[in-house]
C-alpha cells in the first residue's frame, strides 16, 4: 500500500476544510486548526488503474501569504492543493504567491489550484483568462464546489494519481 502526504493551502475562508469534509470522513475536531494550525484527515483513493493510495491530507490553517505558513508541517509532502475562492479575486493572488513559494521550496511536487465556490455563479469574479494565466505557477486548475460536491472527488483523485507517478517522499 502506498501512502502519500497531501497538504491543502490557501487563504482564510476559501473552503479548504469544506472540501476535505466533503471528501473524507473527519475524525478530528476542526478546533485543531485554530489550536495547532493543522488537522490531519485520511482518505483511501482508488486510482484509475485500480491501485489504492492512502492520502494523509493535512488541512492547514488559512494563510494570507506564505510567510505565515508553518513550514514544519509541510515537510515530506508529495503534493499540495492550493485553494482559492472564485468570488474573491484577492484569494487567487494569494494562491499564486503561495504556489510560487512552494515551487521554490519543494521542486517537482504535484500541485493543483482549486477555484472553489463555483456554485455561486452570480458572485463569480474570476475569468477563464485569469485562471489560465495562473496555470504555469500553480499546476492544474480545477473548478470546485464543496457545497454541491462539484469537481471535489476528481481533484483529489487527479492529484493522488500524479503524486504516485512522481514520487517525492
Amino acid at each position: 500500500m502506498i501512502k502519500k502526504k497531501l497538504c491543502l493551502l490557501g487563504s482564510l475562508g476559501v473552503g479548504k476544510t469544506s472540501l476535505i469534509r466533503k471528501f473524507v470522513l473527519n475524525v478530528y475536531s476542526e478546533t485543531y486548526l485554530c489550536t495547532v494550525g493543522v488537522k490531519v484527515d485520511k482518505k483511501i483513493v482508488r486510482l484509475r488503474d485500480g491501485e489504492d493510495v492512502i492520502l494523509m491530507i493535512w488541512d492547514m490553517e488559512g494563510q494570507d501569504d506564505f510567510s505565515s505558513l508553518a513550514d514544519t508541517y509541510l515537510r515530506g509532502l508529495s503534493g499540495y492543493l492550493c485553494v482559492a475562492d472564485g468570488t474573491r479575486p484577492e484569494t487567487l493572488r494569494t494562491a499564486l504567491s503561495i504556489c510560487s513559494s512552494m515551487n521554490s521550496m519543494f521542486q517537482g511536487v504535484s500541485s493543483s489550484l482549486l477555484v472553489n465556490k463555483c456554485d455561486l455563479t452570480d458572485r463569480w469574479a474570476v475569468t477563464e483568462e485569469e485562471c489560465h494565466d495562473l496555470a504555469p505557477g500553480c499546476g492544474r486548475i480545477l473548478r470546485t464546489s464543496a457545497k454541491l460536491g462539484i469537481g471535489v472527488e476528481e481533484a483529489f483523485v487527479d492529484i493522488a494519481g500524479r503524486m504516485v507517478e512522481r514520487p517525492h517522499g
Binding site: V27, Y28, Y32, V36, V38, V40, K42, M56, A70
Partner: peptide, 14 residues
C-alpha cells in the same frame, strides 16, 4: 493509526 501518527507529528512540531 495513520491519522494518530500524522497528528502526533503535527502536535510535536507545534
Amino acid at each position: 493509526s495513520d491519522m494518530v501518527a500524522s497528528m502526533l507529528e503535527a502536535v510535536r512540531e507545534y
